[in-house]
């Protein structure tokens, strides 16, 4: 028990690791500010492409979505970061993370948006178009607001996944939360810094996880 507490909840070591872990936390938050908007925007674009009337475009979008959902994000990240340099494309860790997660997250967000847009009845389109709204206006002020409301739990839950995903950046030495905690771990030979990082992830994500559960229950009832 003593050993367990000392190994996982050593407050002295946590206190010493805190400054380093906090700089990591800041990087993680910055990373979120990059990858979440990119994913939301890319996902919307891909979702719209997967719903256009032109069959070739529609299929291309769906194939891309399925492809990037089949490749584990870590594989994509390592491919972008250490495979592309062989082809002469050398990216910084941040750019590699942004590109790899843009591809991955856009596909997941696209599926969520798609389900949302399809959940809005055809009649809404027809009614909006017949009152003289253009396609863009219909989409912006009639369909999307309802679509987003219908899939709000999935959007939030996917965003939780995106934040969790940023921890993979540690594998390519981007000094985010997990990377700094792991560095502190290897300096102190003690696992407490990782527990500290885990605490920060929990602090960020637990409210969102609760929110997802509540939203899902409200929609179910």
């Amino acid at each position: 028990m003593e050993a367990l507490l000392n190994q996982f909840f050593n407050f002295d070591i946590m206190a010493r690791a805190l400054p380093l872990v906090l700089t990591g936390l800041r990087q993680t938050l910055l990373l979120c500010l990059v990858v979440i908007p990119l994913g939301l925007a890319g996902g919307l674009l891909v979702a719209l492409l997967s719903l256009v009337r032109l069959r070739a475009v529609r299929w291309a979008a769906i194939v891309a979505i399925d492809f990037f959902r089949a490749v584990p994000p870590l594989v994509l990240l390592i491919f972008v970061y250490s495979g592309l340099p062989f082809a002469g494309v050398r990216l910084t860790p941040l750019a590699a993370v942004a590109l790899a997660f843009f591809l991955n997250n856009s596909s997941y967000y696209a599926e969520v948006y798609r389900a949302g847009i399809e959940s809005v009845g055809r009649g809404q389109w027809d009614a909006a178009r017949s009152t003289g709204l253009t396609v863009g206006q219909t989409l912006r002020s009639v369909v999307l607001p309802q679509a987003v409301r219908n899939v709000l739990p999935d959007l939030v839950s996917n965003t939780v996944e995106v934040v969790k995903l940023t921890s993979l950046a540690s594998v390519i030495a981007l000094p985010e939360l997990l990377y700094s905690a792991d560095m502190a771990r290897s300096l102190t030979f003690n696992t407490s810094p990782i527990v500290l990082a885990a605490g920060f992830y929990l602090l960020m994500l637990w409210p969102l996880v609760r929110l997802v559960s509540r939203l899902e229950r409200r929609i179910a009832s």
Partner: peptide, 21 residues
């Protein structure tokens, strides 16, 4: 909730490095 909120890689490292010690 904890398992849903935690990045899996954090848990992997925690168990992998923590338990042997």
């Amino acid at each position: 909730d904890v398992m849903r909120a935690m990045p899996p890689i954090v848990l992997v490292l925690l168990v992998y490095f923590g338990l042997p010690n």
